[in-house]
């Protein structure tokens, strides 16, 4: 019985073994953080879970189902959503359109009813809108609703990506460096939101993060990676005190 489990996953890019036999379990309701130096393979793990890459070895398990072979566009419907390290928003669309697109996994209307914009389509649109508005209120994005993403500052884009992931109604949320590029204040806001996401919305969070202040503020457990291999796993204090981890960060 496991909520999410990576079972001995590995992947090769040409000669590089970017992820090398990584196993971990994420329990329902916790914030699980992956740390490690640049190039350690953290984002690659996310891309494996998003199914952009096929693992060379190992299995991914979500809610007791093997998702190692599920195509990537089915992942959202299963309840896994993500953000990207280098923001991947739909830039020439409004914030509202970005969030509404996140409802795609819950799409019920067919092509021909949309072509005629039947009353049923309008009703479903309003339902999606209501779901999206809850997230807008949650993350305080009201004033940007009709702004085009290209015109928004970096910090707001970062929050918009978080909002878009939440709009899919995920059970597991993957956050790839949620604080990168944010100033101190914005990072504090992010920490509060991650806690709220866990405590108020009951969403499990799997996160990659460099800012150790944010990591210790929100994480229940931490996994440290280096060169694709796990170094240590445990509470923030345990992992930070681990000699291997210290050596990896100091470049010993």
């Amino acid at each position: 019985m496991s909520f999410f489990e990576a079972d001995n996953i590995s992947i090769n890019f040409g000669g590089i073994r970017a992820v090398d036999g990584v196993s971990f379990k994420v329990a329902k309701g916790e914030v699980f953080t992956v740390i490690g130096p640049n190039g350690a393979g953290k984002t690659t793990i996310f891309n494996l879970v998003s199914r952009f890459y096929d693992p060379t070895d190992g299995r991914l398990i979500f809610e007791d189902d093997d998702i190692t072979k599920v195509p990537s566009h089915r992942i959202a419907a299963l309840g896994i959503a993500r953000t990207f390290q280098n923001i991947e928003l739909f830039e020439h669309a409004t914030l509202l359109q970005n969030l509404l697109l996140a409802r795609h996994a819950h799409k019920k209307s067919g092509f021909f009813s949309e072509l005629l914009f039947l009353p049923s389509v309008r009703r479903l649109e309003v339902e999606h809108r209501e779901a999206v508005e809850k997230v807008i209120d949650f993350l305080d994005l009201q004033q940007y609703r009709d702004s085009f993403i290209v015109n928004l500052p970096y910090g707001v884009r970062k929050v918009t990506e978080l909002a878009r992931a939440l709009c899919t109604d995920p059970k597991l949320l993957l956050l790839d460096e949620p604080s990168s590029g944010l100033n101190v204040e914005e990072t504090d806001d992010m920490a509060f939101w991650i806690q709220d996401i866990k405590n108020l919305l009951g969403i499990t969070v799997l996160m990659v993060e460099h800012d150790m202040k944010l990591v210790s503020a929100v994480s229940d457990r931490v996994l440290a990676l280096n060169y694709g291999r796990p170094l240590a796993m445990g509470t923030v204090q345990e992992v930070q005190a681990h000699p291997e981890v210290i050596r990896a960060y100091l470049g010993g």
């Binding site: 998003s50 952009f52 990537s72 566009h73 089915r74 992942i75 959202a76 419907a77 959503a81 993500r82 990207f84 991947e88 928003l89 739909f90 830039e91 020439h92 669309a93 697109l101 996140a102 795609h104 996994a105 799409k107 878009r164 899919t168």
Partner: peptide, 11 residues
């Protein structure tokens, strides 16, 4: 605007 984001949102 972004194929990979579209894909991860279920498109």
């Amino acid at each position: 605007d972004s194929e990979i984001a579209a894909q991860s949102m279920g498109v």
